[in-house]
C-alpha cells in the first residue's frame, strides 16, 4: 500500500552565469521537492512554496556581485513573493543578489584575503526557529563548504547591532571567518524571517560521497517549510 505524499514545489532561478542551479535542484529533489526551473527572463513565478536563488556569477559579477541580477525580470516576482511571506533562500551569489535587491540587510564585499576560498567551513546554527534551520539542533555545528571571492559580509556598527538585537544572524562561522565578514556572519534572515541568505553551499553537502551531509539539514528544513506553505492556508 502506498500513500501519496504531496511534494512541495520549489523554484530554482537560473540567471546568466548561475552555475549551482543544477546542484541545488538535484539536492532539493533528493530531499523530496519537485523542482521547477525558472529562467531569469521569466516575468512570473510558477505556483511554488519556496524560491531558491542559487550560486554562481550572475551577469559576470559586473559592477558588484549581484548588482545587475536584481534587475532581472523575474526579480519583481521574487520581491512580490517575499513581500507576501513566501520563502526565499539565496545561496552565495543568491545571497549577494538578495542584499543588492534590498531583500536582506547588508552587503557582501571582496574577501579580506583577496583570495577565492574553496573549502569546508564549520558553522554554528544560531537559530532553529526559522524555515531554513528547523531540522537543526540549537547551537548545532554544521560542516558546509564555501567557495567564493566576495563573501565578506558587511554591516556598519548600527546595522550590526540591529541584526544582533533582533536575532537575524542565523549562521556564524566557527573560529576565524574564511572571508573577513563582520561578527563571523555566514547567514542572515530578514526581519520577517522568510528570506535567508548564506554564503556556504548546503547543496554541496547532501551526499556522503562528498563528505558532510549537513547541508541536507538546511535544504531539508526548506522542503518541510515549503510543504507546510503548500498545505496550510496562508494565515493573513
Amino acid at each position: 500500500m502506498s500513500r501519496r505524499v504531496p511534494k512541495p514545489r520549489i523554484a530554482v532561478v537560473t540567471f546568466p552565469g548561475s552555475n549551482d542551479d543544477k546542484d541545488a535542484a538535484l539536492a532539493l529533489a533528493q530531499l523530496g521537492a519537485e523542482v521547477v526551473p525558472v529562467w531569469h527572463a521569466d516575468e512570473a513565478l510558477p505556483d511554488v512554496g519556496a524560491v531558491v536563488l542559487p550560486g554562481g556569477f550572475s551577469y559576470g559579477d559586473y559592477l558588484r556581485a549581484g548588482a545587475l541580477a536584481r534587475f532581472a525580470p523575474v526579480m519583481n516576482s521574487v520581491r512580490a513573493f517575499a513581500a507576501e511571506g513566501g520563502l526565499v533562500l539565496g545561496i552565495c551569489n543568491g545571497f549577494q543578489i538578495l542584499c543588492e535587491a534590498g531583500l536582506l540587510p547588508g552587503v557582501l564585499r571582496p574577501n579580506r584575503s583577496l583570495t577565492f576560498v574553496c573549502r569546508d567551513t564549520r558553522l554554528t546554527v544560531e537559530r532553529t526557529d526559522t524555515p531554513f534551520t528547523s531540522r537543526c539542533r540549537p547551537a548545532q555545528p554544521l560542516t558546509i563548504p564555501v567557495k567564493h571571492g566576495e563573501g565578506c559580509y558587511f554591516a556598519d556598527a548600527e546595522l550590526l547591532a540591529e541584526l544582533e538585537a533582533s536575532d537575524q544572524v542565523v549562521l556564524r562561522y566557527e573560529g576565524e571567518s574564511p572571508n573577513g565578514s563582520v561578527a563571523r556572519i555566514a547567514g542572515v534572515v530578514n526581519g520577517d524571517g522568510n528570506v535567508l541568505g548564506l554564503m556556504p553551499h548546503p547543496e554541496h553537502a547532501v551526499d556522503p560521497l562528498t563528505g558532510s551531509t549537513d547541508g541536507a539539514l538546511v535544504l531539508g528544513s526548506l522542503v518541510d517549510a515549503a510543504l507546510r506553505a503548500a498545505t496550510e492556508p496562508a494565515s493573513v
Binding site: 564585499r109 571582496p110 574577501n111 579580506r112 584575503s113 583577496l114 565578506c152 558587511f154 573577513g180
Partner: peptide
Amino acid sequence: GILDPQGQAV
C-alpha cells in the same frame, strides 16, 4: 573606514 583589501594590495 570601509576595509578595502584591493587598495591594501595595491
